[in-house]
Design a protein around this nucleic acid. Structure first.
Lengths: 239, 239
DNA sequence: GAGTGGTCTAGACCACGCA
DNA sequence: GCGTGGTCTAGACCACTCT
């Protein structure tokens, strides 16, 4: 016998098959999957087993089910992505929608900290995106985003980037962001913060460090966001 | 017809029954529930329906299931509570266990901000707990905790408070904390931070504002934590 | 071996969306 | 009215725990 369980429930195998089909793009974002019945027949299992898998993937937000219609690949639409991963709000809870400010994109060699954050090799290149986001017209967030260049070929030549990058990752590069590890800490504003965010040097700044994970569990984005911390908060619900 | 669904699945009713029994203390934390079979018979539904409910409540962390043994009321033990709601860590991810520092408890009238945060009435009284927590022996977190006094009778007369208050709420007052809404922002250290946390005035401070919700959905605790932000971060995984 | 939760099946009926 | 997912049932067998 091996040291791994040795016992592998049927639904686990079905789960892996469905995840692989989504990851490989056999089904595209927004599309409907085959019905439970036809999936069950195709895979040689009961409808109940298929149901268990689809329910689990729906809980993980990879799928969406609509009674009477079908089961769909979840789309990282603008609003959905924002509400899921953009945690900046006004004190008291009102969620916000940032607008796009200035941005720049370049490809360069990875620095040590980036190799560590993204778990990539010494020789690998990265894409660096620097951008400012406005809230109610005011520059409020400055982001430095670093991606492994091999996963996002040609991204630096796109004329412009969408407000929510994750929908771009999904539709153009087949990369589904399913989770993000964030670390938040406080700093005081430096000269660049003063220039970009129009805050006084010495004012408090909220810094959010994020590593985003793909469906396959790979670290595909590192993002450091510096946020004006007068009337904005980082908001999250623990369950 | 009414404007509410008008349709109420069986498992929803069973769900409510089980939640009520836990909330009322019919079953105590750490105890085993009756088996699926006996619950099903008692409630006049199939085992599958009971299973659906118990699985859901397990996902919500109110129950724990152990194959071959039974289904148990989840306990807010020290470690469990800490890992679930204490999000302070070292950069890079290592989770920390705070130790108890000085604390003081008093009962007084509620202030306007507290009435708003806890959704209580003008005349209600509150318990105020002020305490310092140490990390690796260093004063690192200063907390101001406010509770509706009517929910926690006599708490101010306890000789000392445990490190994790939520296990006390659960075992002594029958209050299960199931979720918390947190808002994080940055400030610069004031004179009190300097005194309590030994940081320089003007250093960055992380402030965490939490409202904790009970199983019944009531706001039962408001907590403001001020955290030394040199080598500590607020760490959370978005999914 | 007895009792528990975990998996899997087959089938019935319900609620919903759409043509 | 048809096809979809959602609920509910009954029963079989498996894996785990404890005695």
């Amino acid at each position: 016998m091996s040291d791994t369980p040795g016992y592998r429930p049927l639904y686990r195998q079905v789960y892996d098959i469905v995840v692989r089909k989504v990851a490989q793009g056999t089904w595209r974002p927004g599309e409907a999957l085959p019905s439970e019945q036809s999936l069950a027949k195709e895979l040689g299992v009961s409808q109940g087993t298929v149901r268990k898998v689809l329910d689990a993937l729906t809980a993980e937000k990879l799928l969406e089910r609509r009674q009477g219609k079908g089961t769909y690949i979840a789309e990282n639409t603008q609003e959905r992505s924002l509400f899921r991963f953009f945690r900046i709000a006004r004190p008291g809870g009102r969620r916000l929608t940032p607008e796009r400010g200035g941005e720049s994109v370049k490809v360069r060699a990875a620095r040590p900290v980036e190799r560590s954050k993204l778990e990539i090799e010494r020789a690998d290149r990265v894409v660096e995106i620097s951008r400012t986001r406005l809230i109610d017209g005011v520059p409020s967030v400055h982001e430095l985003i670093v991606l492994p260049a091999d996963l996002f070929p040609g991204i630096e030549r796109r004329p412009s980037l969408p407000n929510t990058l994750y929908s771009l990752y999904q539709t153009e590069y087949g990369i589904n962001i399913v989770a993000a590890q964030e670390e938040v800490h406080a700093e005081v504003a430096n000269a660049e913060d003063h220039r970009v965010l129009k805050v006084a040097v010495g004012d408090p700044i909220l810094v959010i460090d994020r590593v985003a994970l793909s469906l396959q569990g790979r670290k595909v984005e590192w993002r450091a966001s510096r946020v004006r911390s007068g009337d904005l908060v980082y908001s999250v619900t623990l369950t």
